[in-house]
Design a protein around this nucleic acid. Sequence first.
DNA 1: ACTAGAGCAATTTTCAAAAATTTAAGTCAA
DNA 2: TTGACTTAAATTTTTGAAAATTGCTCTAGT
Lengths: 219, 219
Amino acid sequence: MMQQTPATIGSSTYQKIKRDIIFGELEPGSKLKLEGLKQRYSTSPSTLRETLSRLASEGFVEAPEQRGFRVTPVSKEDMIEIGNLRILLECHALKLSVENGDTDWEGNLVAAHHKLHLMEQKMLSGDESEKETWKRYDWEFHLAMIQACNNTNLLSLHAIMYDKYLRYQMLVLTHRGEEAVKEHKDMFEAALARDTKSATKMLESHISNGVEHTLAAMG
Amino acid sequence: MMQQTPATIGSSTYQKIKRDIIFGELEPGSKLKLEGLKQRYSTSPSTLRETLSRLASEGFVEAPEQRGFRVTPVSKEDMIEIGNLRILLECHALKLSVENGDTDWEGNLVAAHHKLHLMEQKMLSGDESEKETWKRYDWEFHLAMIQACNNTNLLSLHAIMYDKYLRYQMLVLTHRGEEAVKEHKDMFEAALARDTKSATKMLESHISNGVEHTLAAMG
DNA sequence: ACTAGAGCAATTTTCAAAAATTTAAGTCAA
DNA sequence: TTGACTTAAATTTTTGAAAATTGCTCTAGT
């Protein structure tokens, strides 16, 4: 029946605000006044507070007592911390996933890499019009890699870290091009070949190269 | 001036509800109806929703669209996941901490272990009247161990996992006594001696023994 | 007896205004 | 000028009630 998800106002503003923070439309460090947000997202204070509290507990927003909300500021130190955490979580999950993954896992992974690869070719040929789609495919690929780790708690923590990392990437706009494409391909092949050691090693340097790139661009 | 923290109603109900979930006074899986909570914690729906949303994003509460809130159920699988994650995060943090810790770190660690040890002696001698204090000292000890890891994001993730783990421990009531006391002491000494390998190894088995103990008691 | 549907009660979600608190501005004394 | 105090404005926090949704019960039809 193709039932459209009803989605409460609360959850849809949550997604909108989170997206706007990650993509930099709400600037790091900027004050989030309820009056302003009320206009922008057309909801009431209570609903907004609910949303912002959630984002605060994930670390996208700061909420000091009695003085409202602000977008969590960025810093090189924070970027490094997040990079290291993403390495810790994602490599651990990857190891488990490569060791446990069944045929379904392989199938989904092949599909995810294929979609990502196509989009990357498009990006390399100069078409940067679909940056958001590209990023979604990047996410779906990395998720497909670790999907079979069999630990939902781990997957949720990782999802948050990925998004925090993503905000820094979006901050500097530029992307790494061919290098990153090759890294994705190599990781993908190592994972399919069940070569845990290589796969995790590659993932670690993939992420850590990304951090370096971002830090350099941050000046 | 010894200024008492003012604390908003929101943040104090947050602490109360979280505590009640961890200590089992709000049963795993039980429905959290706003009317009831309104009575119990004397606040309004909006404030409660704010609180519950925060707890949901930390994983202590489930919040399916349009059908309110319930305390996150427990399961053996979840306990195992959480134990493994605590091992992953805490061992990693411990390694960094032991390698970086300065004199202040050592001082705080000595103090924390001392307090914990005293309380453990008291528990061993049969006085179980201060379980909550004991648990606080356990937390303060484990935190002191990893405090110097120099990654605040890591510390926050760990704090959440510790609390989730704690709920399972509280669920089964019994504690491991002398074994755990010895493990604490050994870990502590290895950390002070800057023996990273031993310290992390001991921490890993400390946590994993705790998981086994809890699983066994869960039946 | 069983299923489908209407109507009602319970519950959740959203809102808009009141209360409390912080921030800013203005005044006055040293 | 500076700094403390007062007052007003802006902002956040909390409330209680309205709107929307879900879940239940009871009836009717097969």
